[in-house]
Structures are given as C-alpha cells and as structure tokens.
C-alpha cells in the first residue's frame, strides 16, 4: 500500500473522536471519507496533515513512517474547507509559496506557478488578490497551491461545501480530472453521499469515530455490511415484522405483483416518489421515472418487492 494507516486513535478531553482506525490507499487512488458531522473524518485528515497529534497509531506514506513528522515536513498538502488562502498575497504568490521551501528560485517558481494556474483555468488572474476572486476560483487557487509542490498525498476537506450546487458539480469533475492527470493519491472528505459516489475510487464510511465500511462505491450501496451503512446511504424500506429491507428501486409496478394502495405521491421533476400500503399494513416507498400514466392517491396498483434479509447485517 502507498499510504497505510494503522490503529489511528485520537481523544479530546477523554472523548474518543477517532477510534482505532486502520486503512490503506493505493498510489493514484481517490479515497472518500464519508460520514455525518462529528464522525471523526476531519480529525483523520488533520492527523494525516500533521495538524493534530494522534494518541495512538501509525501513518506510513510511500514506505516512510511520517507519524511524528510536523506538518511542514510532510509531503502532504491540504485544501481546507475555507481554503486558507493568504489574503495579503496575490494569487501567484499564494500558489508558489510552497516552492521556496524546496529551494526553487523566484523566477523558476513563477513559471511553475503560471503553468499550474493554467491547469486550473485561472490564467490571467495571477495578480489579483484572493478577495477579488469568486468562491470557485478561490477553490481552484487552493488546489493549485496544494499541488504545486508535487506532494505525495493530497487531502481535501469538504472542498466543495462552500459553493453553490451547479458550481459544485463542475468543480467536482474538474478535481477528478486533475487528480487523474497528476495521478496523485487523494483523500477527499465529505458528508454528501452523492459527491462521494461520483468521485471516489473507494469510500470509507465512518460513524462516531469508527470505521464502518470500506469498499468500492457500488459495493457500499448494494452490499451494506451494517445497519448504519444501509441507513446512511440511499433510501430504504423496512419490514420489521419479517426482518427484511428493500431499496426503493427494488420495488416496481408489475401486474403480476401484490395489490397495494397508493397512500401518497410526490412529484420531484424527473422522478415521482410513491408511498404504498400493502395488504398486511406495511408502508413502502418506491420511485418511478416521470413518464405518462402516473397513479392517483387511493388508486389500487400491483407491485413486486424484492426483499433482502436484515439479519445478515451487523448491529
């Protein structure tokens, strides 16, 4: 493994925020750490960046144990949620700041910086101050600044959360493209599962400081190993009486199916979500694409439900 974290533990005032977490990332891979707020994901990032000292555990990057290295000596770059740009420096000075610590002369550094800015589509903005840029542009400067020193590991802490929805989509694919181009090992922290699914090679799901599931995105969705994974990711119908569950897309209208009554429906643009009542009194939800022939509330319909057993899940 290119990056190997073993038994990472961090306590604040006797409260364990990261508990005995171990995982690994291959070179060039993009790992997303996903979880609700307070699950410990940002603390892991801080521990990797060298900004908090872990109470236990080891971090090995490219064969070197960096556990006790201070932030300034780690070949790791972080892009913070609030970007942390230097407000008193121009864009280019921000981008090339890290180069002076690896002994690159100003002239050479500027050349590299301008190249880097081109890659993030910011040519021509070199001499502006960060405050003169839009949120998306500031984000790009932060990424460029992080990449310019060619770190071995790039850490992104909810980098898109301060942007509006449309820009978020745009920058998400840009980040992915840059990550591929540089083939840089990346850890991307988010609480947004859609974001995680669309960008990650692998997802690490966390809750209350513990690692819940570590798998490829599709696997996480289709084969949740715990109740928490099942609940947190996507939407789900429960049939507690028979101890089973189904995803919304596992319920579909079919004449051969069981008869149910439409309790409610909500129009969501491309899709319509229905709430159905089965003959034994269970309510289940399903979605169908917005095509002709929607059902009305109170109407009888036939639907098939593909149930999965709950008892194979942990907790």
């Amino acid at each position: 493994m290119f990056l190997e974290i073993s038994n990472l533990t961090k306590k604040y005032n006797n409260k364990t925020v990261v508990s005995n977490v171990s995982f690994g990332v291959e070179e060039g891979e993009l790992l997303t750490i996903l979880g609700p707020s307070g699950c410990g994901k940002t603390t892991i990032l801080k521990a990797l960046g060298g900004f908090v000292k872990s109470d236990d555990g080891k971090v090995i990057l490219d064969g070197i144990d960096i556990t006790d290295f201070p932030a300034e000596e780690r070949p790791v770059s972080t892009v913070f949620q609030s970007y942390g740009l230097f407000p008193h420096m121009s864009v280019i000075d921000n981008v090339i700041y890290g180069l002076k610590f690896i002994g690159i002369k100003r002239k050479e550094a500027e050349k590299i910086g301008i190249e880097m800015l081109k890659k993030v589509h910011l040519q021509g903005e070199e001499n502006k101050r960060p405050s003169q840029l839009s949120g998306g542009q500031q984000q790009r400067v932060a990424v460029a600044r992080g990449l310019v020193t060619r770190p071995k590991l790039l850490l992104l802490d909810e980098p898109l959360s301060n942007l509006d929805a449309k820009l978020r989509l745009e920058l998400r694919s840009e980040i992915k493209a840059i990550q591929r181009e540089f083939n840089i090992t990346t850890i991307f922290v988010t609480h947004d599962q859609e974001e995680a699914f669309s960008i990650a090679d692998k997802i690490m799901l966390m809750n209350k400081g513990e690692l819940i599931q570590f798998s490829r995105p599709r696997e996480l969705y289709e084969n949740p190993t715990t109740k928490f994974s099942l609940d947190f990711i996507g939407s789900v119908n429960y049939d507690e009486k028979n101890s089973r569950f189904s995803r919304l897309e596992d319920v579909y209208f079919d004449d051969k199916g069981e008869e149910m009554e439409v309790l409610d429906y909500s129009f969501k643009g491309q899709i319509i979500e229905y709430t159905l009542l089965t003959s034994d009194g269970t309510t289940i939800r399903t979605v169908s694409l917005n095509r002709k022939g929607e059902f009305a509330v109170g109407e009888k319909v036939n639907a098939i439900v593909n149930w999965s057993p709950l008892d194979k899940l942990d907790k």
């Binding site: 960046g49 060298g50 900004f51 201070p70 932030a71 300034e72 000596e73 780690r74 790791v76 770059s77 972080t78 913070f80 949620q81 609030s82 970007y83 942390g84 740009l85 230097f86 407000p87 008193h88 700041y97 890290g98 610590f101 690896i102 932060a142 600044r145 992080g146 020193t149």
Partner: peptide
C-alpha cells in the same frame, strides 16, 4: 483564520517563515 497558518505550514513553512510571511504582514 487558523487555516491560513495551517496552509502555510502545510506548504513547508516553519515557525519563523509563518511569523515573517503570514502573521506580521496580516498584523500590519
């Protein structure tokens, strides 16, 4: 914002550089 100082360290700045390049200019 503490993230400004973290960023500088992250890019390789030691305490002297952070004080010289970040803290003092921001305190001007």
């Amino acid at each position: 914002n503490s993230k400004i100082i973290y960023s500088a360290r992250d890019l390789g700045a030691d305490t002297t550089s952070v004080i010289k390049d970040i803290v003092i200019p921001l305190l001007r």
